[in-house]
Write a protein that binds this DNA or RNA. Sequence first.
DNA 1: CAAGTGTGTGAGTGCACACTTACAAACAAA
DNA 2: TTTGTTTGTAAGTGTGCACTCACACACTTG
Lengths: 180, 180
Amino acid sequence: MRSTAEARRVTVLNTAVSVFARAGFHATPVTAVAAAAGISEAYVFRLFSGKLGLFVAAAGACFDRIADAIEAGAERAEGGSAAEILDAMGDAYADLIADRDLLLFQVQAQAVTDIPEVAEAVRAGYRRVATFVQSRAGASDAQVQQFFAYGQLCHLIVTAGLEQVPEPWARALTAGIRHP
Amino acid sequence: MRSTAEARRVTVLNTAVSVFARAGFHATPVTAVAAAAGISEAYVFRLFSGKLGLFVAAAGACFDRIADAIEAGAERAEGGSAAEILDAMGDAYADLIADRDLLLFQVQAQAVTDIPEVAEAVRAGYRRVATFVQSRAGASDAQVQQFFAYGQLCHLIVTAGLEQVPEPWARALTAGIRHP
DNA sequence: CAAGTGTGTGAGTGCACACTTACAAACAAA
DNA sequence: TTTGTTTGTAAGTGTGCACTCACACACTTG
């Protein structure tokens, strides 16, 4: 007994987020995440109910990490105005997605929302984050909407590699966006 | 000679946008777009250089239609302020993506930007649209950025089906967004 | 030590799908 | 009519991959 199944599941999920982030659900064989996690493909299938079960669980892990980071960011702006707390949350999010895996996984998850289980996982993730932002920052609907709109803009900037494009239109889209 | 190859290419591309929009690049067999276009799979491979060539060409068609719609919208606000022209463009875009195919195809394209040819097609599409918005509306960088940020927010709303979610956080995210 | 339980894998199986090839029919020009 | 070109397809081929199963090793309990 080298390790408990539950501990394995956690490490596999974190590597799954990174591996799925690169090429997405349909283009990444579970062999790839098994290899990255250092275990056999067969054991991944024993730990999770099929490739879809693995992906949905990875989505849960992804949004958990995002929610945790944003909550930690809010801590650091304790007692500030709604705008200040939102800023702190945005900075925490920017720091978190510097490695791109969590951001790209969200893009990949949104691309396979034609699978109902994935759509529900995405909704659950945004429900958790959005309700927290709204209640904890005491932000208005418009502020919350803007927070997520510019978050989604980051997805475009990163997937299209706009920070590498030295043209005026790309500079306009990336202006003031942290990190990416 | 039932039809010219060039005419076939056009019809195949439009059906390809719709078919790829649903399940994405890797999950849709070219048999599916061939069947939807009413021709054989083999002929699709003769008309385009592989599945990737088909997808990249479809991306071009998708952004062409978006750019055309936004240019037509700008026509209708001729002589207005930057904000008015941006509004007209936004309305035109909202009308266009009412059927969801063009919006979902963009999401799918962004999800496979790890393929360089796709990334370049996406950049080319946004380059055309963004430069037009910036020059034709005479909008500031911040206005252009906001225009695209809320456009990307639409992608989240549609893929996650947020307009069907009767909870406060979802209402906040969808507030004031037309159509979806 | 024997039997039981949980962790882990090698070696398949079957199917979906990208891409090819050989061939046929429509049309044009001589 | 014959020759050539373009549009179109049916029937493969090979490969990659989701998923399974029989089996082995580690560790515990009596």
